[in-house]
Every structure is written in structure tokens, then in C-alpha cells.
Nucleic acid binder design. Structure first.
Length: 383
DNA sequence: AATGTCATCAACCGCATCGAA
DNA sequence: GTTCGATGCGGTTGATGACAT
């Protein structure tokens, strides 16, 4: 592995985000080590492979434990259980080409040559949980070569996986900018509010929660938030009270009303109020006080018509000088106290040099202003 | 201790979308 | 304008651990 393959910015990103990878030896975190040296110590000295260490198994008894360990609390126990290193060559997965069905499909496709080709050659393609060894290979490959076309990744990285599976594994688990652990209460509330506006557009929602994936949010919604809302007497689909007659003061608003087609800023504010208030009505005083700040922060973004439109559409908002009031310089990034560039900066460097797909990092619809706004939002929520 | 049930979440599947030819 | 491959997205599945009986 050649160090100069990587631009300095990506080295810095690697250095900064190192502790988000669950399976690397935490003893190697040396904040004072320059990125190049650090990278060498972790990657190069291991003969172009990462030194992987199995994490502690996830402790399900600590369901609401959101302590920030640096180490994740949610670990893929099936993939990275202690001892998985020994079964490094894929004993843990299910072979896709087992059984008659797929073989038949595959041969059919070969013979008839009709219809779309499968996204990958099904023969010999492995399915099921990823092993530590596979993770190693994928990380190594992407850090060395960046993200080229996913279809080519498995072949080039020496993986018996389809490209789709590689992309998912990277974006949902291995990506270095991912946060670990359960969603905080603040994040949860943000998800609820965003869901009220965007519906099941998980990728859009995830884009507003840096470090969280759509899959993670979707799962959290289905397993936790839905139940919480139902307990509060709120329909998780419409975000309205389940028994409207019980809350006559609530004005009705369909989810469609929340669309930003309305160019009236006041309409949007009203809708925001409805969503948040209906939620708050069923919430305990403690929760209310906790969420008030969130709501204000969310409103400060969502009441801005341009920004809200950009939430709904895929277009980034145009720069508006008035936003400067709520958007201090990005240098205040809390993760940035070492003076390194933000991940976004790093990412820009990566994409410049290595043909990374922006979308795969979840920043596709971000521009600098939005990112700054989100940094602030996140800082406030974490406070 | 053994068995059944539930909760969780990583991974898969299939459709949608986009862009290049 | 059409076709086709690559990728993204959202719904669903299934393996696993925790908990209940």
C-alpha cells in the first residue's frame, strides 16, 4: 500500500474518524501522532491490512445506554463476534449458489440472455453476515482506491460479494464518519419532526442527522419511535392524535399540508406548530422541556422557507445572508478541536482526488451552509 | 435447565431513478 | 426516444440474544 495514494485530507479524515471503527485496536489511538505516521502505524505496518480486534459483544441489557465510549455499543455481533477472526474465510455466511433455484436462474440467464443481468454474478457470491476478514478487505480497498464503481469493488478487493452488498456494508457500517450507539433523545425528536414533514423518506431524514444511516434510522423508527408515539396516542403515520375527538383543540392537517408547495411561510410555521404541539401534548413535562430547545432549533431551520424547501426538494438552498445569524463559522465543529479539517473538508479532498461518490457519504444534498447549519443544530442538540 | 416468544438490527430484495450509449 | 447498466431507496427478512414461562 502506497501512502501517497491517499491525499493528506483523507489521511486526516482517517486519523480523525479512526475511533469510530469498532474493531480496530483502540490502544492505537494516539491523538498526537501526525496523520501520516498514524496511518502507517495502523495500516502499512500490518502489510497493507488492518489489524482487527474483535469488539465486546453487544450488551442488550443496556438498552438505553447512550454513553459515549468512542467504542460502539451496537455491534454486529454476528459478524464480529469474538473468534470470528478464526473463521476468517467466510464460514459464517450462507452461500448464494446453494440449492437448485439460483443455479437454475443463473443458467437460464446465461442461456436465454434475455432480461436484465443480475447485479452480480450469483455463482460464488456470498450472502449473509460479513466476517471481519471481509470488512478488512473492503476497508483496505476503499481507503486505498476510493470508491469506484461498486460492481468492480468485490473483484478488485478480493471479495466474494456482490457490489451492492459491499456498498451497503460500507455505507451502513464501515463508513468512518458514522456515529455509533443508539439515537439520543434529541436525535429521536429530530427524526420524529422530520418524519412528520418528509414521511418515510429515510435517506432524506438521515441526511439531516450526520453520522446516521437511513437503515439505522428506519430500524430505530420501527422498533422504538413508532411504539413511543403510539404510547403517546399519536399516529406514527400521520403524526396526529389517534383519537381526534379527545383533542378537539388540534386543528386537522394532512401530511400533504406539510408540503412546501405552499409558498406561504406562515403556513409552514403553523404546520410546524401542529406537528410539534400534538406531540408535546402527550409528552411528560420533562420530555417537553427537553424537546423545547429541539423544537426551537428545528423551527429556526424549518421556518426558513428556502431551507425547508431544500429539505423537501433535493436542491440545496441558495445562500442567504440572514442565515449568518444562526450559522457561525464551521470551525466551531465540536469534533474539530484538534484543528483538523471537518469531515466535509476531508471528503471534498477525497472526492477531488479519488472519485468517491458523494452520495455514498450521505452528503449529496448538503452544501456548505446546510452542513454548517447542521453542525450548529447538532451542537445544540448535544448540549 | 429447557423451551418458547419477543425485540433488535444487519443484510437482502426488488423496484425506482439516473445517466450514458 | 429507447435501452441498459449502475446505483439508490424503502420494505422486509432472518439470525441472534434477551426475557418469560
Amino acid at each position: 500500500m502506497c501512502l501517497n495514494v491517499l491525499p493528506r485530507k483523507s489521511l486526516e479524515a482517517f486519523h480523525l474518524s479512526f475511533n469510530t471503527w469498532p474493531f480496530l485496536d483502540q490502544d492505537k489511538i494516539v491523538n498526537d501522532t501526525p496523520p501520516e505516521e498514524f496511518y502507517r502505524s495502523v495500516v502499512e505496518d500490518k502489510g497493507s491490512t488492518f489489524e482487527l480486534h474483535a469488539p465486546k459483544p453487544r450488551d442488550r441489557s443496556q438498552k438505553n445506554n447512550n454513553l459515549d465510549f468512542g467504542l460502539p455499543q451496537i455491534l454486529p455481533t454476528r459478524t464480529l463476534k469474538r473468534g470470528d477472526d478464526e473463521m476468517a474465510d467466510g464460514n459464517g455466511g450462507v452461500e448464494c449458489n446453494q440449492g437448485v433455484g439460483l443455479a437454475a436462474v443463473s443458467s437460464l440467464a446465461t442461456v436465454s440472455n434475455m432480461g436484465r443481468q443480475p447485479c452480480c454474478d450469483k455463482l460464488g457470491v456470498k450472502k449473509g453476515p460479513w466476517t471481519a476478514e471481509e470488512d478488512k478487505k473492503l476497508i483496505n480497498f476503499i481507503l486505498t482506491n476510493g470508491q469506484c464503481c461498486w460492481r468492480a469493488v468485490p473483484k478488485l478487493a478480493g471479495l466474494r460479494r456482490c457490489g451492492k452488498s459491499c456498498r451497503l456494508r460500507w455505507t451502513n457500517y464501515l463508513r468512518p464518519d458514522l456515529k455509533r450507539g443508539l439515537l439520543t433523545e434529541a436525535e429521536e425528536q429530530l427524526v420524529i419532526d422530520l418524519h412528520a414533514r418528509l414521511g418515510n423518506r429515510w435517506s432524506k431524514i438521515a441526511a439531516r442527522l450526520p453520522g446516521r444511516t437511513d437503515n439505522e434510522i428506519k430500524n430505530h423508527w420501527n422498533t422504538h419511535i413508532k411504539k413511543k408515539l403510539l404510547k403517546r396516542g399519536i399516529d406514527p403515520v400521520t403524526h396526529e392524535p389517534l383519537h381526534k375527538e379527545a383533542k378537539p383543540e388540534e386543528s386537522s392537517s394532512s401530511p400533504d399540508d406539510l408540503l412546501p408547495e405552499s409558498s406561504n411561510n406562515n403556513d409552514i410555521q403553523e404546520n410546524d406548530g401542529i406537528v410539534i404541539n400534538s406531540d408535546d401534548n402527550a409528552r411528560s413535562p420533562t420530555e417537553n422541556s427537553c424537546s423545547t430547545e429541539n423544537s426551537l432549533l428545528l423551527d429556526s431551520i424549518c421556518n426558513d422557507e428556502m431551507l425547508l424547501n431544500s429539505l423537501w426538494m433535493d436542491e440545496p438552498p441558495l445562500a442567504d445572508p440572514s442565515w449568518n445569524k444562526i450559522i457561525p463559522p464551521a470551525a466551531e465543529d465540536t469534533n474539530n478541536d484538534m484543528g483538523y479539517p471537518s469531515w466535509e473538508d476531508n471528503y471534498t479532498g477525497l472526492s477531488d482526488c479519488q472519485d468517491f461518490g458523494v452520495h455514498d457519504f450521505g452528503f449529496d444534498c448538503f452544501d456548505t451552509i446546510e452542513l454548517s447549519a447542521l453542525d450548529i443544530l447538532e451542537m445544540e442538540l448535544n448540549r
